[in-house]
Nucleic acid binder design. Structure first.
Lengths: 343, 343
DNA sequence: ATCCCTCGTGTAATCGATTCCACGAGGAGG
DNA sequence: CCTCCTCGTGGAATCGATTACACGAGGGAT
C-alpha cells in the first residue's frame, strides 16, 4: 500500500534523502560509492519519484498542454501525434484537451490544464479570443498558437499558409471550366475560418469571378454543418458547379449531402477540400485537397513552445500548403494510375 | 508573478488557511459570514487551488489515464472522445497516451501515467502482457481493459463481442457466392488480433469452408501491414475472392494495394472490415463493415473504472457488434441509393 | 605545523494545500 | 449561576520531494 518514498531509499542505502535526491537529479558532489548504493536501493525497491511532490517544489511539471479543436478530425489527430512525438523527444509529456469546436469546452480544458500547472500551452483556438486565453497570455503563461490563432497577442503562431495553394486550386478549377464556385466556411471567429474564405475570394477575383453570399456556406468545421450547407447550395435556383469545403469533415458532410441527392461527383458537382487525409485517396471519387505539412507544424509548434519555456525567443513559423489534385473536380492531373470507372 | 495561494486568500478574508480550505471543500462548520468573505476573496484574487499540492496531500488526482493503441485510428479516437466525455461528467479528467501499437511506447505511457499518480487506468493493451501492466494490476492499481484485454488477470473488461457479427458477415459473403475468403489479422499477442481470426475460422467452418494459412495475413492493425498482406494475397496463384481486414486501417491499406494493382472492388475482389467509420460510406465502393458500439464502450469503461476507484465492484461488460452491409462485397442489401458507377 | 579550500554529506526549510486537534465563546439544561 | 456540549476557528503536522546552508574531514600551500 504505502508506496516507497525517497526516505525508504535513503534508509536502505544508508544515506540521507538529500544524497538520494542529488543522485537522482545528477547533481554535483556525490561519491561514487554512495551513488552506487543509492542506485542499488532505487532498483531493489522499485522506487519512482513522486512527480506531484517534485513539481510542487520545483514549480515545473515538464508537461505541455495541447488543446485541439476536434479529436474526430484526422487533421488534428495527426497534429496531436506529431506534437506528442516531438515533445517526448524533448523530455516533455503532453496532456490533451479536446475542444470539440466548442469555446466553453475549450475553456474548460484550458482551465484544467492551467490548474495542473503545465509548463506551457499549445492552442488552436476555437474562437476569436476567450477571456481565459487572453488572460493566460497576458499573465505570461508560455503559449504558442498552432493552426489557428488570435490576432493582437504577442504569442508565436505556427501555421500553414494556404493562400498560394488556394490560388492553385482556383486555377485548377478554372482550367477545368468551372465558373460558379462555392465555399463552405469555418466559423468566422477562427482565423482559419475567415482566412480561407478571403484567400478563396481573392483567388476568384484574379479570374474575375464573384463570390456571392449565397455561395458562402456557414459551417463549423464539423460534418453536420458541411451537409447542411451543401443541401442549401443544391437547393439554389442556380447551384454552384464546385463546392470547396474549408476542412475535411465538412467535405465528408458535403459528400453525404451530394450522395443523398443522388448526384455524382464530378459529373454533377465538383468537390474540393482543405486538409488532405489518407481517406481522400479512396473516396468515390478521390477528393482534390489542399495538404498541410501537418507533422512539421506539430514539431515546429513544440519547439517554439519549449524555446519559450526555456527562455529562448522563438519566431512564428509559416509553412506552405500545397494542392493535391485528384479527380473530384474533373479530369485529374496527377501522374497516378489512370483508372476510370467507366473505362 | 507569485501566483496567489491559499494564504493570500486567507489574509484577504481575515481568516486562517484552514477555514479557506473548509469553504472550498464544502466541509462542515463554517459560519455564513466567513464563507462569504472567503468566497469574495477567492473571487477578487482569482484564486485557483494548486492541484499538485492538493493531490500530494489527499493522495488522489481525480484523473484517469487512457492508453489507446493508435490515435490515427478513428475507432480509438471515437473511443477516446466518449471516454473523456463520460469522465468529465463524473468529475474526472483524462490523460491520454498513444501507444502507436508499440508495446514499448505503451509501457512508456503507462509509466508516465503511474508517475503522475492517476487514480485509475484504462488500457487497450498493445501486447499480450507487459510486465508493467501485470505488476500494476497486481499492485492494485484500479484498472479496466477496454476493447482488448490480457487474459488471466482479475481486471474488468469492457469490449464488444464480434462473433455473431462475423458469423453474419460470413453468411452474407457465402450468400453472395464467395468461397475463398482471406483475413488480415491483427497481432496474435492482442486478444482482438487472435479472436477475430478465430471467429472468422469458426464461421467459415459452419459453411464447410477452410481457412488456409496462405489466407491469413499477419497485420499489426496499421495501414502499411494491410497493404503488404493484401499484396501477398494478390500474388497468390489462387488469390482469395474476399479480404476481411480485422480493423479499419488495414482495410485502408488493402484499398491502397488493390487500387495499385488496378483491380476493382467488388468485381475483382471483395473487401470487408472490422470497425465501421464514417468514411466507409464514401469510399469507392462503400465498405461493408462490422460496427462496434464505440461510444457505449467508452462510457461503460469509465463507469467501471470509477466504480473500482470509489470502492464499488464493477462487472465486465460485453456489448454486441453488428454487421453493416454495403456494396464492397457485391450486390448490397441496404436500403440506400441504388447508384452504380456503370449504370 | 598551520591555515584554508574543496568535497561529500546531512539537517532542516520549503512548495501549497488538507486535516487533526485544541481552544474559546455562547447556548441549553440543571 | 454553574456546567457541559456544540460550533466555529486557528495552529501546526503532513504529503514527498528539492535545495540552501552548515559542517567535518582531508589535502595542498606556506
Amino acid at each position: 500500500m504505502a508506496s516507497v518514498g525517497i526516505k525508504d531509499v535513503a534508509a536502505r542505502a544508508g544515506v540521507s534523502v538529500a544524497t538520494v535526491s542529488r543522485v537522482l537529479n545528477a547533481h554535483a558532489s556525490v561519491s561514487p560509492a554512495a551513488r552506487e548504493r543509492v542506485l542499488a536501493a532505487v532498483d531493489a525497491l522499485g522506487y519512482r519519484p513522486n512527480t506531484l511532490a517534485r513539481s510542487l517544489r520545483t514549480d515545473q511539471t515538464r508537461t505541455l498542454g495541447l488543446v485541439i479543436s476536434d479529436v474526430l478530425n484526422p487533421y488534428f489527430t495527426e497534429l496531436a501525434r506529431s506534437v506528442e512525438e516531438e515533445a517526448r523527444a524533448l523530455g516533455y509529456s503532453i496532456i490533451f484537451g479536446n475542444a470539440d469546436e466548442r469555446p466553453e469546452l475549450q475553456d474548460h480544458h484550458i482551465r484544467t490544464l492551467l490548474d495542473r500547472r503545465i509548463d506551457g500551452l499549445l492552442v488552436s483556438p476555437a474562437d476569436g479570443g476567450s477571456p481565459l486565453v487572453l488572460d493566460a497570455a497576458r499573465a505570461g503563461t508560455p503559449m504558442v498558437f498552432v493552426d489557428r490563432w488570435i490576432p493582437g497577442l504577442d504569442v508565436p503562431v505556427v501555421r500553414a499558409d494556404g493562400r498560394a495553394a488556394v490560388r492553385d486550386l482556383v486555377a485548377h478549377l478554372h482550367g477545368l471550366g468551372h465558373r460558379r464556385l462555392a465555399i463552405i466556411a469555418g466559423p468566422a471567429a477562427t482565423t482559419t475560418g475567415s482566412e480561407r474564405v478571403a484567400a478563396f475570394r481573392d483567388a476568384l477575383a484574379e479570374y474575375g469571378l464573384p463570390l456571392p453570399d449565397a455561395y458562402i456556406g456557414q459551417g463549423d468545421f464539423q460534418a453536420g454543418s458541411g451537409r447542411r450547407a451543401t443541401e442549401r447550395f443544391l437547393a439554389l435556383p442556380e447551384p454552384p458547379e464546385v463546392v470547396f469545403a474549408a476542412d475535411n469533415l465538412m467535405a465528408l458532410g458535403a459528400l453525404d449531402a451530394i450522395r443523398a441527392r443522388g448526384l455524382r461527383i464530378p459529373h454533377d458537382i465538383a468537390l474540393a477540400a482543405f486538409d488532405d487525409i489518407p481517406w481522400f485517396v479512396h473516396t468515390d471519387p478521390p477528393v482534390t485537397a489542399i495538404a498541410q505539412p501537418t507533422g512539421e507544424l506539430g514539431r515546429a509548434a513544440v519547439r517554439a513552445l519549449t524555446d519559450l519555456i526555456e527562455g529562448r525567443t522563438p519566431e512564428s513559423v509559416t509553412l506552405p500548403a500545397r494542392l493535391v489534385a485528384r479527380s473530384s473536380c474533373g479530369e485529374h492531373t496527377t501522374t497516378g494510375a489512370t483508372r476510370r470507372s467507366d473505362a
